[in-house]
Design a protein around this nucleic acid. Sequence first.
DNA 1: ATGTGTGAAGAGCTTCACAGCC
DNA 2: GGCTGTGAAGCTCTTCACACAT
Lengths: 211, 211
Amino acid sequence: MNPKPIPNETIGRLFVYFRALMCLRKENKSKTVSSTQLSEICQVKPAVIRKDLSYFGEFGTRGVGYGIEELIQKIKEILKLDPVIKVAVVGVGNIGRALLSYSGFENEGFTIVMAFDSRAEVIGQKFGNITVEDVENLEKRIRSEGIQVGILAVPESAAPVIARRLEKGGVKAVLSFAPCQLFMPDSVQLTCVDLSMEMARLFYYSFSGDV
Amino acid sequence: MNPKPIPNETIGRLFVYFRALMCLRKENKSKTVSSTQLSEICQVKPAVIRKDLSYFGEFGTRGVGYGIEELIQKIKEILKLDPVIKVAVVGVGNIGRALLSYSGFENEGFTIVMAFDSRAEVIGQKFGNITVEDVENLEKRIRSEGIQVGILAVPESAAPVIARRLEKGGVKAVLSFAPCQLFMPDSVQLTCVDLSMEMARLFYYSFSGDV
DNA sequence: ATGTGTGAAGAGCTTCACAGCC
DNA sequence: GGCTGTGAAGCTCTTCACACAT
């Protein structure tokens, strides 16, 4: 058991702060920022920001605020944001391509280093400095390259099999875009991004209290 | 105020049940399903399923379970899943294309009916029966077509402006893929799908309790 | 016997208010 | 004055156990 129970939501918000801090650093208007200032950028209440940060230590200075550079480093540590962690994308359809061509990840602490697909016409294509490989060799290749995180961007029908193979290849975490339930051992962290579900939630809240 | 406070999470889970029920209906093995059976498919505990459903009425039969067809209809009603609600995609990059070419949405209760982009080479392209239009005319077109939901799939730099224009065009809800904070009036429901944040969360949980 | 519906207990997260420090 | 750090209160969501229906 950990010393203190850290809310799940806190982790997500830390990343939001992180991104805001990166902006502030670029603007370079000040070396420090108060929870009130941060709250305006992040749309999170000042007290929440302070409590979130306080779970991990006392990073601020009373009467002043938080050192921007220092806080960036602290959050990096906490979230293990580190481009050394290797990520692979499986499935180079539209979603896979979107991920491969998004250049923002590097500023945000991680890098995609491999891509796999099953289609002959896609294998061998280059995206930046990544060449799409044959999914046939998935387990072997991700194991030999030390891939720790897999992104599942294949069609629903292939998702369960690929998920299993990522697990066999030794990844510790999987981010899935497949609109279906996946079964994973507890040793593998699984997050599903379910667009239909988000849409459904939006619908409910937009059209419920209606005339 | 509503009669009972309904957990936010319940809404998301309802959609998960919905999808599972659609599968069960297709399999056509039985007319009914118990919360225990559903729980195995959805990976949600039986008691949670029962409580979630009980917020909206008494849909089950004691000793038997829930009628599959009946429950599908009820959830459709609750979530306002209805292909009559019109959705537009703004930004036909990789993410936009992924959404336009995903055929599953129709089974899941909504339809994308328009697409916009600013790039001359994309405007006029067809995806299924949708022709990409010039984002120039965004407000006018979504208003005249009665678009109620906008999906924001443009680069970060354009996101705040387009968000504002969607709002002006009269949408009631926006689903954004932009990795930045957006400011919207309370009258517009906003959900942000933040992939970097999900990655960061995964990282934290995968590499924290580590050696 | 089987399986739903639900009040009450429990766990988790947020908010508040203010003590403590600059 | 300004701002952080935090215990305690308040709120929300989940879990449990069992009454109730078929």
